[in-house]
């Protein structure tokens, strides 16, 4: 069977960047806050609506719409952090209770969206110019290119920020030992809100960039959430590098399956790969890369 290398490469990179964007947020939140944010999908959905409102009322300029989505995402992240992390983080059973609290927020939020905007999907204005170019034998639309470039740039910026800046050090310190972090003067609550805002912003960005795939609707966040969780899980919760490697790997698996077997089997092969990874390394790809929160 002939496999089109260029097509495969383009698909892999596209999927990897999308998955990376979705998984990194969940992964960072888990490692620094010790919380599984099941409301990440809600942030995704509400950011879509934020961008849509901006496009309806202010401007359909791509940058403005994008900014609207990101800002809504940050706001939503901060609210989730304020509701699920701040009151619960020093209570017994925090991990399970925060998981359930974020689930409740997700249920609440998506029903509110349904109530306010109705079940019909909304479309965002195009952010990048239409058209495309040829890359080898594969054609790449500017839309897709924009999504890839945007997410890769953002992920790299994120990595650098985590590595270099004062806030990044703060977050990394909190990932490793919350009490030690408090002892050097890191405020756990403010850092947590900051983390939630940054990851919320990432989700907002993803929502706008992916509005062609996952249209803006009250339940648009469910599938990205599940994908993000699965990729983060395979990467080893809490590791940025692991999440990115897992995103690339699962992107490749998906592209290969779609080309070789057909789109219906994508999830099944992905799952097989993930289960195999987890059976070999229960802490995911990053289990051996670095020590993260237990």
């Amino acid at each position: 069977m002939h496999i089109d290398f260029y097509y495969l490469a383009v698909t892999t990179v596209t999927l990897a960047s999308i998955y990376g964007l979705l998984a990194v947020g969940i992964s960072i939140i888990w490692s620094s806050l010790g919380m599984i944010n099941m409301a990440h999908g809600f942030t995704f959905a509400v950011s879509g609506y934020g961008a849509w409102l901006v496009a309806q009322n202010i401007s359909t300029n791509g940058v403005v719409v994008l900014a609207g989505g990101v800002l809504t995402g940050m706001l939503s992240g901060a609210v989730i952090g304020g509701l699920a992390f701040v009151p619960l983080y020093d209570k017994p059973n925090f991990a399970v209770r925060s998981l359930i609290a974020t689930l409740a927020i997700a249920l609440f939020g998506s029903q509110c969206l349904l109530w306010a905007f109705g079940p019909r999907v909304k479309a965002l204005p195009p952010i990048f110019p239409t058209g495309g170019f040829k890359f080898g034998t594969a054609s790449v639309s500017y839309d897709r290119l924009g999504a890839i470039v945007c997410s890769i740039v953002l992920l790299l910026a994120m990595l650098a920020w985590m590595k270099r800046s004062r806030r990044g050090l703060e977050i990394r310190a909190m990932m490793q030992n919350p009490e030690g972090a408090a002892l050097v003067g890191v405020g756990l609550r403010s850092t947590a809100i900051a983390v939630m805002m940054v990851t919320g912003g990432l989700a907002g960005l993803a929502a706008v960039l992916l509005s062609r795939t996952y249209f803006v609707s009250p339940f648009a966040g469910a599938i990205p959430l599940v994908k993000g969780i699965i990729v983060a899980l395979a990467g080893g919760l809490g590791s940025l590098a692991g999440a990115l490697i897992a995103a690339a790997l699962l992107g490749l698996v998906e592209a290969l399956t779609a080309v070789g077997l057909g789109g219906r089997f994508v999830l099944i092969t992905q799952f097989l790969v993930i289960i195999i990874i987890l059976l070999i390394r229960p802490r995911g790809i990053a289990g051996m890369l670095e020590r993260t929160r237990e």
């Binding site: 004062r166 050090l169 990394r172 310190a173 990932m175 030992n177 972090a181 020590r291």
Partner: peptide, 23 residues
């Protein structure tokens, strides 16, 4: 406070620790 058990960040380097002390 330099507590018992040190409360260090095991994955971070010594330089990171010194920086975090200057937080």
């Amino acid at each position: 406070l330099m507590p018992q058990g040190d409360a260090l960040f095991h994955g971070l380097t010594v330089a990171d620790h010194l920086d975090s002390g200057a937080y």
